[in-house]
């Protein structure tokens, strides 16, 4: 079973790919206390302490086991204008889309405009 990899420095967000769609999804706060997946990186829950990171990790483990997502891992971020932005350029591309095609991917609103919740 694919395990959740080592924890990066905090603050961090949890991302994954939806098993059936392949889209990049982010753990986000639900209506109640529940965690849900969103396709919008701006809505990603930011874990600023170990307790919050542990919550995200156990959510990831449950979702992997439940065959809903694949390749789930935490990504360290900084907060820019109120939204989390990954520190590493690889993960930044994952929240945006191909840099040579600004018309595609999340940067073009892919999967985001049709309802902010996955």
């Amino acid at each position: 079973m694919a395990a959740v990899p080592k924890r990066p420095p905090l603050p961090a967000i949890l991302l994954a790919n939806d098993l059936l769609d392949g889209d990049v999804v982010f753990a986000s706060g639900g209506a109640t206390d529940a965690i849900v997946w969103t396709r919008d990186p701006a809505l990603a829950l930011v874990a600023t302490d170990d307790a919050a990171a542990t919550v995200l990790e156990s959510f990831a483990a449950a979702e992997l086991a439940g065959n809903r997502v694949v390749d789930a891992y935490l990504v360290d971020v900084e907060i820019q204008s109120g939204a989390p932005v990954p520190r590493h350029f690889r993960e930044r591309f994952k929240t945006l889309g191909p840099s040579n095609r600004p018309d595609l991917g999340k940067q073009a609103g892919d999967g985001i405009e049709n309802g902010r919740r996955a």
Partner: peptide
């Protein structure tokens, strides 16, 4: 895969042998 009979580790080589990868965005 969806009903859990195949784990992701087992499914991955099967999907790869049909040309299905997981890339960054999709």
């Amino acid at each position: 895969r969806l009903d859990g009979s195949l784990t992701e580790d087992e499914f991955k080589p099967l999907r790869l042998k049909n040309g299905v990868y997981l890339q960054l965005h999709a």
